[in-house]
Design a binder for these strands. Sequence first.
DNA 1: TTAGAAAGTGACTGGTCAGTCAGATTTTGA
DNA 2: TCAAAATCTGACTGACCAGTCACTTTCTAA
Lengths: 223, 223
Amino acid sequence: MIVPQSRKERERESRRKEILASARSVFSEKGYSRATLEEIAQRAEFGKGTLYNYFVGGKEELLFTVIEQMYDEVHTLITDHFESAGADQPMRPVLRALIFKILSYYENHQDTFMILVKEVQRLLINGDEKAAYFIKQRNRLIEALEAPLSQAIQSGQLRPLPPRAVANMFLGNVHGCQMHVFLDQEHGQVDNACRADKNAEFLTTMLLDGLLVSQPVAEESTQ
Amino acid sequence: MIVPQSRKERERESRRKEILASARSVFSEKGYSRATLEEIAQRAEFGKGTLYNYFVGGKEELLFTVIEQMYDEVHTLITDHFESAGADQPMRPVLRALIFKILSYYENHQDTFMILVKEVQRLLINGDEKAAYFIKQRNRLIEALEAPLSQAIQSGQLRPLPPRAVANMFLGNVHGCQMHVFLDQEHGQVDNACRADKNAEFLTTMLLDGLLVSQPVAEESTQ
DNA sequence: TTAGAAAGTGACTGGTCAGTCAGATTTTGA
DNA sequence: TCAAAATCTGACTGACCAGTCACTTTCTAA
């Protein structure tokens, strides 16, 4: 958080960032195991050895740093959104706008999304100490969502379901929707913002109103 | 589909299955790239060379065969369910039961679920010819869901949203819910069936009724 | 019983790549 | 200006492992 002082330090920081950007792009294209340090170094215009001056932990530290960055970015997106929205707002426009922001973020950072899909899920589920760290990171995200959702549930705006589960599902749905965009991409290059907007509308309706057409009078209330 | 005739053929088939089961367990524990043929062979109680008598394509053919099996199993689960339910049933109990079945299946085949999470997503998104094959497999699953959902939409039971997107989201939510179970597994060994049932109820409510508490009279219908 | 076929095997090969380090290059500051 | 420090570099090493194949073991049927 402290701005580096000297020109030297600023330059070092900037080279570090270049390496990270290069790593992000290679990891997103190849996936962790097929990515090579050689290629990361090449794209960043350094020799392989130089990477170790910046990331002593080698390949793994590179991946972890990239993932940490990504989580920070999405976390900021979410907390900023709820901060600027203020408390006790009607949830529909607030959530719709958030969905739109996250979808747009993924559209504009497809590399980030790729790494999330290809690597994070694998890491999350691996059961070792490293997994624990990423579960914590992920939980930070979930909690940033959970708090406002929980409030909305208490104020009676949202249905009384477990807020943590709702937060998980919310994030999972946005994620899943973006995945769907990747897989069904025969829609010849629709404008990104337009597509994100349509998907945000779809998701908002599905999540807030549900699939069932509301029945004013329940015919069969058995079970 | 044809039952092998001779004892010899039956034995060969049974050994093939043992190798596949072993591959499934190793892939689910280690992930594709960290799994070794040596270990697969060991668990199946064969030498490494023998694997090539059964799977000429080596490691990759093993993975692909395993994934194909998994898709077949889930596909059967879905189609059988809708077949036995019959058409024009009320959707709530039908979908709730399906969610329960899929969640239970994943509970009882955690290895399958692991491979889905660790490998399939990575393969789906990779853009090469192999990805295309798995996208087709996945689409078979989606389509098995899409047809009944589409019918329910046309009959006015479900909200008129694009049925394909709904099918995608439906499957994604079941999947996401199971993921959630894995990640928040500090609930000391709750009975599987019970947990699956609770989660099925939660998902059914969230998907069918939505998060928003229905407002008979909208106070502020602005925007 | 046995010869030939079929099935099984694991030491070996070749390729890959993360990580190292001795030396080259650049920067610094006196 | 130049020596020492800092930085960069890529050839090299060792570990790993998929895939091969010459050999062994087991089966079959005459």
